[in-house]
Structures are given as structure tokens and as C-alpha cells.
Nucleic acid binder design. Structure first.
Lengths: 219, 219
DNA sequence: TATTATTTTTAGAGTAACCTAAAAATTTAT
DNA sequence: ATAAATTTTTAGGTTACTCTAAAAATAATA
């Protein structure tokens, strides 16, 4: 079994690895985990001793298969709990993260299997992120940014890039939530802002900044 | 906010206080928490500094109102989670304790309120123990021991004294679970063993040892 | 009551995770 | 390529919780 902290380090390194393709450096880990570089070095040594990652001094780290497996399991737990909180307990999608951050560390494989079944084996969490399977497979979604859509294109609102509470609450406010059908009416050449028709009804005007943080699935 | 460990100490002391009526001594706490007396003394000092209990050297401890409140909140969380695991995730009543022991420390008042509502405000957990209300009130059940029933008395199986997995599994096996209607057919004078009719159908023979660990509500 | 047994506390130390400050290595810029 | 800036590591220390062994206080017994 691995500690709460070890799991958090592995998850952080895993998420950084997703977009990096190269060794993850100490400072970026410290940054994500809101801790100091010296603390990261300490933990890295420990995780390296446990063969959860490959570490070369001054060269950063890479997860081993073993480390990656635990990281993905933790992501799976996190996203299943988020789904539970949202779908069953009716939490808003902006409220689920912090609680799932705690719940993801509960130790019981049977619990996760049963939760998965109770939720009817969901494929995505309330933010549209894919939920890894029990085997650790992650179906990668063919989503594109809303900002990349051309005029007259139709797409399904399917996820977000920014997961911050502020952004999610803003989307709630303008009614741009998961599952909404969006048709681009106009893309402003000057500032990249987008006008769209939501669910074939409501007209909506959003900035490029917002459009760049929304993932859609083209129909 | 209080730590995982502090909550466990408060809960342990609270449970010991329930049947004690006097100051709780160091060794009994160490016993319940499977730790050493020296560790208990350390933690007691800490909790005393935080005004969660009254402590006099060599004289044991008593919870303050503040300490009792936290203990009861922790019991409430534990029993709500047990109910969730049993009713929703279909865990057996012998499987819920250990997982609830972890879940009870998740920090979020809103979570517990929503869980309570999701479970439709249950009054008792899967073992028949009362679930404290949000206000910390605990309805005390007028249950008596099955071993105290006279011949021909009818009662509802409503709880257990022994919460061990072995005992609960045994009850599952003989079909003596919560809600079963029991009518005492015969009480053996020699060894106190009891013969009963369950749900007006099945005849059952149980030892006094078992009867003394079953709580019933007389009809 | 004096002695013995038991319980509780203190003293000193270990582990996990964190920190600051300084040293060492690496990278960037002149 | 050397100096300057940045990053990373080491050294030493803190906190929360744990332990063993010894000392002190209380309770039990002769």
C-alpha cells in the first residue's frame, strides 16, 4: 500500500508526463503540489527506492510501469468519486474536485469496483475527462477546442481544459454545460470571439479565451 | 479541523465513556486503539491543550462538550458511510466497518448532509446502531437482548452487540438478519440456549452466547 | 503499614513529511 | 568560454505520531 502523499506525487508526475514526453523536473512537481523543491527531492528518492520512478540526479524523473499503474488507479478513483458526487449527490461540477481529492485515497479495490458498477460504468467524469478502466486503459477522446471550429460547424460540448471553479461557474451561468449542442454562427476575425447557437435555441457570444478552454466533439 | 488520529482518539474515548460513567484510563484507550500507553499519554496532553478533554495526571480523562461533539460527528459519519456501503453498494454488514473507518475522516460538512439526504435520512446503520442527527442527538433504542426473552414472546431482530465479522457472517448463515421476526419457542433451562421460529416459518436453535449478542425490539 | 504489583508518565529516540539556507550542478547569457 | 542566473541537491531542523525502557505514582496485598 502507498501513502496519501506518495499517491499524490505519482499522480502529479503522471499528469505532467502526459504533456511532456520527457523527464519531469523537480520544480514543476513542486509547483503542482504547492511544495518546495527540497521536499520533492526527498520524496523522489523514496519513490525511486521503491521502483516507482526512474531518477537521475539533476535530470528529472520518469514513472516506471509500476508507478504509472498506481497513478492511473488514483486518477480512476478520483474520477469515479467525482462522478458519484455529481450524479448521485447532486454536487455541481465546480464542487467535486476537492472532495474527490480526499476520497481517491481510500484503500479498497472492492469499493472501487462496486462504485463503478453502482454508477453504471461511466466512461467520463463530470468535466468530460475519461475514466480509466479497471485494467488501466484510457480511451482518448477525439475532442477539439471550440476555438478551432469553423463557421456553421456543429459540435457537442464535451469537456473543459480549465478545471477551475471560476471558469466552471461561468459556464453554468451562460448555460454552456456538458452535452449542449453548439453550432458556430460566427467567428470574429479581429479577436477570435465566437457566436454560437446552443441547443438550436439560445444565441451565445463567448470570448476566444473561453472558446479555447472548451472541448467539443464534432458531429 | 482535526487530524485523522485526533478524531480516532476522541471516538474511542467517547465509546468507552458510553459504558463507563467515570474517567477513562490510559490503558483502556491504548487497548481500543491498539497502541501503547505512552502514545496515549502524549495524545491526551495534546487533546487536553485543545480543550477537547479534561485530563488529570494518573486520574484518566473525560471529554468536554467540544470533544464529545467531534466524537459524535465522527460516529455519525461512520454510520452514514456504513449505510451507504450496505444499502447502495451492496456490501455485506460484515464488510462495511473497515472501509467506513477510512471514509469517516473525509472533511466536508456538505458531503455528509448530501449523503444523509441521498440515503433518505436513515435512523440506523446496517448493524442496527442509531445514526446521530446533524444536531448530535442520538435516539436511544429500547432494544433488549434476545437472551432476555421469555417463551412465546415475539420480537424484531434489531441489532447486534458483537460487531465482529465472524459473528455477523454466522448470523448471515443461519438467516438471523436485521428485520427478521423472532418468536421464542423454548428456552433451555440447563444452558440458556434458545429455540425460535423465524418469520413464522423456519425453526432455529441458537446458543445462549449467540442470544446474548442479539438485540431485539419486543412487539 | 510496608511491600509488591500495576498503571501511568517521562525521557529519549525513530519515521514520514515538511521546511530554510547553503552548496553544488546545470543552463543561459555575455 | 567564462560569468551569471537558475535549478537541484544536501545539510540540518521541525512537527505529528509512534515506540521502548526506566522512573514515578497509585492500587493491591500480606
Amino acid at each position: 500500500m502507498y501513502s496519501y502523499t506518495e499517491e499524490n506525487y505519482l499522480k502529479a508526475i503522471y499528469k505532467l508526463s502526459e504533456k511532456a514526453e520527457e523527464a519531469i523536473n523537480t520544480n514543476s512537481i513542486a509547483d503542482v503540489l504547492q511544495t518546495k523543491a527540497a521536499s520533492v527531492t526527498d520524496m523522489i528518492k523514496k519513490l525511486s527506492d521503491k521502483k516507482l520512478l526512474k531518477y537521475e540526479k539533476y535530470k528529472g524523473v520518469l514513472l516506471t510501469e509500476k508507478g504509472k499503474k498506481i497513478a492511473i488507479e488514483t486518477v480512476r478513483k478520483h474520477r469515479l468519486w467525482e462522478t458519484f458526487l455529481h450524479d448521485k449527490l447532486k454536487f455541481g461540477w465546480d464542487e467535486v474536485h476537492d472532495i474527490a481529492e480526499q476520497l481517491e485515497h481510500i484503500q479498497s479495490n472492492l469499493l472501487i469496483d462496486k462504485l463503478d458498477e453502482f454508477l453504471d460504468f461511466p466512461s467520463h467524469d463530470p468535466h468530460g475527462d475519461p475514466i480509466p478502466t479497471k485494467q488501466g486503459e484510457i480511451k482518448k477522446s477525439n475532442f477539439i477546442l471550440l476555438s478551432e471550429l469553423k463557421e456553421k460547424q456543429k459540435a457537442n460540448m464535451s469537456g473543459v481544459v480549465d478545471h477551475s471553479s471560476v471558469f466552471l461557474k461561468h459556464l453554468d451561468k451562460i448555460g454552456l454545460t456538458l452535452g449542449r449542442v453548439c453550432e458556430v454562427t460566427e467567428v470574429n476575425e479581429f479577436d477570435g470571439s465566437v457566436t454560437l447557437k446552443v441547443d438550436a435555441k439560445k444565441q451565445l457570444y463567448i470570448s476566444k479565451e473561453v472558446a479555447k478552454n472548451i472541448l467539443v466533439k464534432v458531429k
